[in-house]
């Protein structure tokens, strides 16, 4: 236990502590002299910043949309793969592939494919798509959307395989009994499959959050900050790296933690319930 705990918490402790400390100061790489303790001023400013609320909304929207999409795709594909069929083994491998394909580099390929920097045979088409999307959702929307698509493509694959494992862990009689008793497949899905899968889905959702941030980070780094859509995470980089406002960056970063922690507490109830003792 100790080594693992030390590794995870030890490595995380300092950065988290540092971020908390930084968020309470006016630390900036441009300021003269050392950082000065300013208390909760940064947080106060943050809460009054409309840009922050916009970024928060975008972030939550991003998480909600990608996670929902991943769950829908994941559940769908897992159910498809759970049913016996001659094609199953091959399709299973195909579905597994997006996740197996090393995401850190595939996202590079993906991004450049959807945002071709050079003239290629389909760049006019992609250009039109980009203009159409950006026209409706604002500048930078297409680049952002392409990251979402990637995240859903790869995460959906992970979720599908993960939930397939979950389905396999559920005794088949539970599904057979439902087939005897329920009137429609939809009824069966809602009354039986979904609740039985729920704990695994909760776990998958949480893992999905972490990759959602990682993918954004990857592309942001890759494109030198060309993700201009305001997202809490990337904006924090922006503040830190491009303008050296480390205190503000820390504040932005930490603003997410309570939300994620809250999500985690809710999800724990699903996937790590305290077992009732048998009578």
């Amino acid at each position: 236990m100790a080594p693992a705990g030390a590794l995870v918490l030890g490595i995380l402790a300092y950065p988290v502590a540092w971020e908390i400390w930084a968020s309470l100061t006016d630390f900036s790489s441009r300021a003269e002299g050392g950082p000065v303790f300013v208390g909760l001023a940064n947080y106060g400013r943050l809460l009054g910043d409309t840009w922050f609320w916009k970024a928060l909304a975008t972030t939550l929207g991003y998480l909600a949309v990608t996670t929902t999409a991943k769950l829908v795709l994941g559940v769908g594909m897992a159910l498809l793969l759970a049913r016996p069929s001659r094609l199953r083994a091959l399709v299973f491998l195909a579905v597994f592939l997006p996740w197996a394909y090393p995401g850190g580099i595939t996202v590079i390929a993906w991004y450049w494919m959807l945002n071709p920097p050079l003239i290629t045979s389909y760049s006019v088409f992609m250009g039109n798509v980009k203009h159409a999307v950006d026209g409706v959702l604002g500048a930078g929307a297409w680049a952002f959307l392409s990251v979402m698509l990637f995240n859903v493509w790869r995460g959906g694959s992970f979720t599908a395989v993960f939930l397939l494992a979950g389905l396999n862990a559920i005794p088949t009689e539970l599904f057979e009994y439902a087939r005897l008793e329920s009137r429609s497949a939809w009824q069966r899905f809602r009354a039986v499959t979904l609740p039985l899968l729920a704990p695994y889905m909760a776990l998958a959702v949480f893992l999905s959050f972490t990759t959602a941030f990682a993918d954004l980070g990857n592309v942001w780094m890759l494109t030198g900050g060309r993700i201009i859509f305001p997202v809490v995470g990337t904006y924090a980089y922006w503040l830190a790296v491009k303008s050296g406002q480390l205190a503000e960056a820390a504040t932005w970063t930490l603003a997410l933690v309570p939300l994620l922690a809250l999500g985690l507490v809710v999800l724990f109830r699903w996937f790590d319930p305290h077992e009732e003792t048998p009578a």
Binding site: G5, L9, I11, L12, Y14, V16, W18, L246, T253, V257
Partner: peptide
């Protein structure tokens, strides 16, 4: 749970202090 809760900290955002470590 605490171990798992470390996922609530978006590691990728922590890279500045991480770099210091």
């Amino acid at each position: 749970r605490v171990l798992f809760a470390s996922y609530a900290v978006p590691q990728t955002i922590l890279f500045i202090p991480l770099y210091q470590v």
